[in-house]
Write a protein that binds this DNA or RNA. Sequence first.
DNA 1: TTGAAAGCGTTACCAA
DNA 2: TTGGTAACGCTTTCAA
Lengths: 343, 343
Amino acid sequence: MQESESGRRVTLADVAELSGVHTATVSRALNPAARLKVAAETVRRVEAAAHALGYVPNVVARGLRKRASMTVGVVIPDLTNPFFPPVVRGIEDYLQVHGYTALLANTDEDDDAEEALVTSLLERRVDGLIMATGRHGDRPVLRRLQASGVRTVMVNRDASPLPFPLVTGDDALGIAAAVAHLHDLGHRDIVHIAGPLDLSTSLVRADAFTAAVRARRGIRGRVIEASALSVMAGSEIAPFLLADSPPTAVVASNDLLAIGVLRALKAQGRSCPEDLAIVGFNDMPFAEDLQPPLTTVHVPGQAMGTAAARLLLDALAGDAPGAGAVVLPTSLIVRGSTGPVRR
Amino acid sequence: MQESESGRRVTLADVAELSGVHTATVSRALNPAARLKVAAETVRRVEAAAHALGYVPNVVARGLRKRASMTVGVVIPDLTNPFFPPVVRGIEDYLQVHGYTALLANTDEDDDAEEALVTSLLERRVDGLIMATGRHGDRPVLRRLQASGVRTVMVNRDASPLPFPLVTGDDALGIAAAVAHLHDLGHRDIVHIAGPLDLSTSLVRADAFTAAVRARRGIRGRVIEASALSVMAGSEIAPFLLADSPPTAVVASNDLLAIGVLRALKAQGRSCPEDLAIVGFNDMPFAEDLQPPLTTVHVPGQAMGTAAARLLLDALAGDAPGAGAVVLPTSLIVRGSTGPVRR
DNA sequence: TTGAAAGCGTTACCAA
DNA sequence: TTGGTAACGCTTTCAA
């Protein structure tokens, strides 16, 4: 029998009354850990009563008492960026198995929004935070988090100089592979389209690009900074690529930027990879179905999410200070958007 | 001055002590609604104290007292399905503006997982639920929700016979447009690849297909039911399409299925739209960048999310019983995957 | 093995 | 306008 639709929710007290014992006893009987210390017969009676009343424990009340909400805040820039859904799934799946729930928040790369969201999450007493909105520089939000003592893990983007544990992909490796691949195909004039350079990911990739180019003789490597990690930003960069001394290949800091370039290229009636070879980054879902199929660096988004969640929960459980960094491998996936340099 | 890193969190009592008033007064001074009934001077003192201590209200405790968690459960099949991120964003954005937070849960179309997740959300005393996992049939989860009295809104998929309010796209309209488009192009033998027919969306689309075909003379229209709304399921269907009496065009129940067919087609060395015209459904992000660009029915996912959140919050605010259904318009987007019938 | 009582951090009611 | 008290639903110590 469930509680009636309009009826008051049933509480421990109700169960206690029906089973003729004290609420404390009900609490113990229903708690797997403490159940041992309760007479088997009592446990049976309590469980029967709880079931009969359709009792649903109030985790919020429990949390208030135990000072743990069993809740984790997940702050990302934009769920609509195809890189993030797998990350969030990874986080969620891990949390769920361990009894935690995710509170999701999108900042849209807006600092004020982020402030407000973090405030809201703190007010909700999340036990920990996973942030995918790291940027370089000593930002107030992160300082606040640090001061508040709420366990925080960064995913994908770093937040130095603040010392939060970080889960990331081996971006440098991926970029190096991309440059090597293009070099092997005969490309000697390559442009890297970087994301905003205050994002650690952008910076790491740009630096890796420069290093990779420098490590090979006879390559010209230029870096252009895009205004955002978006399709539009990619399209806006394109004219510069196609102007005076156009490169034969481009390595973009993410797939969105690559798609932007691709669109602009098509709009001009040029084709990829013949007129311009393009390498993306992230291997977003369906990158293989694009026109042309996108050569890109695969980043294990879901695994990154899982790792971040694990790092956080470990820190929450033990009082381990939280590891420094977890770096997951990346790999270049060669598809149709790259080919031998023309002539 | 923030509380120290390891220090106890600061509470109303701390603020009360520092400002020399009772906790009840602090509560009132900090509550915008009750602030009026507090001396301006007191308000100022309290605010100063709160600020000085870095006081962060405990929304959980407040919720316990007010019997409202300001929290909404969002249950979707799989965040990794590109249809859902925009929906979730729509929900989130609306909730956030209104002071609510979303608890996200993925069921992976698994009934047991769904049961467990809903239980967990109920234990967390969500004020309402938005479910994108509707199916036809009188499922226990939904019965439970109904019995629990927790306000619930369905998005995208219906859950009849259970009478939950529903926000959906005008699928029939979209399918009709697709069939008309193919007919205009000369196609006379069209197959509809339906999703599992216990999903309301699949059923509605299949019925609309049959009706649209019937409304035109001289078209042969067949319906094949796929095992899931996934790329793989689409690929598995493809052999049947390419066998004995192949149609000249296909209308898929969603984009994933369409992509599956596309991949199978390519694997066989056939091409789209020449050998087979394909229409998808949903207009997933980057559908326009696929090879070939996918003709598909645009469904306003984000708007659906927003509408669902609004419906729920309205129901939560007033005691309005919640409207029956909101139907958002869809539209056919013609791109490269459809063309005139060959010969 | 069970009960009593206190307390988690708020808000709401009733008095003053 | 403010203070006191109780209550939200639970867990946990301490006694019995």
